[in-house]
Amino acid sequence: MSDSMILLLAKGAWETIVMTFVSGFFGFLIGLPTGVLLYLTRKGQVLEHRTLNNVISVIVNIFRSIPFIILIVWMIPFTRALVGTSIGVEAAIVPLSIGAAPFIARLIENSLIEVPGGLVEAARAMGATPFQIVYKVLLPEALPSIINSASVTLITLVGYSAMGGAVGAGGLGQIGYQYGYVGYDVFVMNTVLILLIMLVFLIQFLGDFIAKKVDHR
């Protein structure tokens, strides 16, 4: 393998990592509060609100039903307005974040549902405000499960970012697409695959490790 090819692969790997983690971060920034809100407005919860819950739920479902490859294209005007371009890593982060957010919201909602209701009740009985219930009870208690959700999300994002690569997002996906699908260079294609597999294993390993560390149940 030539030096330039190694450099290209290293750059691609770095871009994939950046896309995955940065969009994961922004995805959580949007998805976490949405998930918490979905949970809190559920029937029987502290901020029960049917209409609000339905509205959020519908929006989340709509975004979850758009295939990611179409979401990227569909969002181009918005992406351009936000980061000034529709090509490259920066541009890919926008649809990746938006694509991940509703997915994360549902995962967070499910994590919170698993927290025993008695804990929320005890906190209410002690005079905790809804905000205190969220950040002192629900989120810490759901943390191991939220971290597992984060692993799942990041791994999904590795896949999404590769999809983005096909339409000019950069990263390992684009290299795999250009050298593999277009040029049919088996060696490069397989190297890309191995790098992606390693990345996924690493995320899963770290996720499991951290989840176990914070789990005292």
């Binding site: 025993p116 008695g118 009740e121 005890a122 009870v137 810490p140 208690e141 943390l143 149940r217």
Partner: peptide, 9 residues
């Protein structure tokens, strides 16, 4: 409470 409801975290 019957089931104590302590925070496991």
């Amino acid at each position: 409470f019957q089931h104590f409801n302590l925070l496991s975290s």
